[in-house]
């Protein structure tokens, strides 16, 4: 589930509020977005992809867990999904280098 909106990284662009398919975030005047409906989160990691400054962290567990921002920062996990995909600053990239066509050859027909 979405666990962290890093106030240190967030620029309050509110793109996550707009793109979250589950409407998890709320805009906050003069602040960073609030995780207002965490229980609706489907752990899809899409908010991380769209965040232009890698300020969000989604834990893989489908239920709330305790996550330390310091640990995530020190482990270099912010923006990890976007880097693996090839998205940069919230914009798509990497589809042209997707080797999934090779994965298909491994699978039974």
């Amino acid at each position: 589930m979405i666990e962290i909106v890093s106030a240190a990284r967030c620029i309050s662009c509110n793109i996550c509020v707009k793109v979250c398919p589950a409407n998890v975030f709320d805009e906050v005047a003069d602040g960073v977005p609030a995780i207002a409906r965490q229980n609706d989160c489907q752990t899809c990691f899409l908010c991380e992809l769209y965040c232009p400054v890698d300020a969000l962290f989604v834990d893989p567990a489908a239920e709330p867990v305790s996550v330390s921002e310091t640990v995530i920062e020190e482990s270099g996990l912010f923006g990890g999904y976007a880097r693996a995909m090839g998205w940069k600053r919230g914009k798509p990239g990497g589809a042209d280098a997707d080797p999934t066509y090779r994965i298909r050859t491994f699978l039974p027909v």
């Binding site: 990691f45 999904y81 693996a84 995909m85 280098a97 997707d98 080797p99 999934t100 090779r102 994965i103 491994f106």
Partner: peptide, 10 residues
């Protein structure tokens, strides 16, 4: 290939 092509699996 899975790591690169389907990163959300890993």
């Amino acid at each position: 290939d899975v790591r690169k092509g389907q990163p959300n699996i890993i």
